[in-house]
Structures are given as C-alpha cells and as structure tokens.
Amino acid sequence: MATAPVTLERVTRMTVASVYPLYLAKLERKGRTKPELDEVITWLTGFDEATIAQLVRDEVTFAEFFDRATLNANASLITGVICGVRVEEIEEPLMQRVRYLDKLVDELAKGKAMEKVLRH
C-alpha cells in the first residue's frame, strides 16, 4: 500500500509527537540513542531537552515547532537527498526545515559521527 505524498499542507498539520517516536525507533534500531536524537534537534532548533519533551507532550505541529525554533546558523550546510529531493533546493521554508531534521536523523541512523552530522 502506498503512502500519501508529504505535502506542505500535511506537514503543516503534522505533530512533532507523531513523528518523534518514529525518529527514535529508527535510530534505536541502528544502535543510536534518545540523547543523540535530542542533540541533533537541539542543534537544529535551539531547544533544550526539556523544551523538546514539552513540545512533544503538547503535540505542537511542525509549523508551530519551527515557528518557535531558532534555526542553527549552519543549517544551510545540510545538503543531500532525502525522500528523493535535494534539501538545499527546497524553496518552501517549513518543508526545508522538516527535511533538514529528516536528513540529520537519517545521517545518524547511517552511523555518521555526531561531529559530522552537526556540521562542526
């Protein structure tokens, strides 16, 4: 069964709480941890671990999540393909930010060193 395409409208309404456990499960299958997931989210958004947990509990949408975030100045260094699309070419800011997060999680899952994931 095919899944529905991820449209901007769908992403705008999607909650972080609905995706966070999926990110965590993906990482844990690959031997990574919740603190590592929170570390990449913190790097990208400026949120600390307690704030991330609260936003997940509050079931904020990705639109609200990224509206409240302070995007890392080096986020534009996140490049590559995620879901068949080059993240650096995505023009819609919210979709690009969500794909930045997807890309960071994907890199962690593939075993990339944290220093490289965080563009140090």
Rank of each mutant, 00 (worst) to 15 (best):
R99Y: 14
L77P: 04
V56A: 10
D58K: 08
T12C: 08
R86P: 07
G46R: 13
R57G: 11
T7L: 03
E59Y: 00
E49M: 05
E28A: 02
E91M: 01
R29Y: 14
L44H: 08
E91N: 08
L44Q: 06
K34L: 11
T61Y: 08
P21V: 14
L118A: 01
H120M: 06
P93M: 11
E92Q: 15
M14R: 13
K30I: 08
L8I: 11
E115P: 05
A17T: 09
L104P: 01
V60A: 10
V19L: 03
D106T: 09
P5A: 04
S76M: 11
L22A: 01
V11F: 04
R99E: 11
D102E: 10
R119N: 06
F65M: 04
L44I: 05
A73G: 11
L55Q: 05
F65P: 08
V56T: 12
M114V: 15
V56H: 09
L44Y: 05
A53M: 03
E28W: 06
A2R: 13
T79Y: 07
S76N: 14
R86W: 07
E59W: 06
M95N: 10
A4C: 04
K26N: 14
A53C: 05
H120Q: 04
A109H: 07
L22W: 00
T3M: 03
R13H: 00
V87W: 01
A63P: 10
A17G: 11
F65R: 03
L108R: 02
Y20F: 15
F47H: 07
V40T: 06
R13W: 01
I82E: 12
K34C: 09
K103W: 12
T79P: 04
N72Y: 09
P5V: 01
R10L: 12
D67K: 13
A53P: 00
A73V: 14
N74K: 15
A2H: 13
L104D: 07
L27M: 06
I41K: 12
T15R: 11
R97I: 00
L24W: 06
K34D: 13
V11L: 09
A63V: 10
S76D: 14
D67A: 15
V98S: 12
G84M: 06
D48M: 03
I41F: 12
F47D: 09
L8E: 10
V105H: 05
E91F: 08
T70H: 14
P5M: 03
Y23H: 15
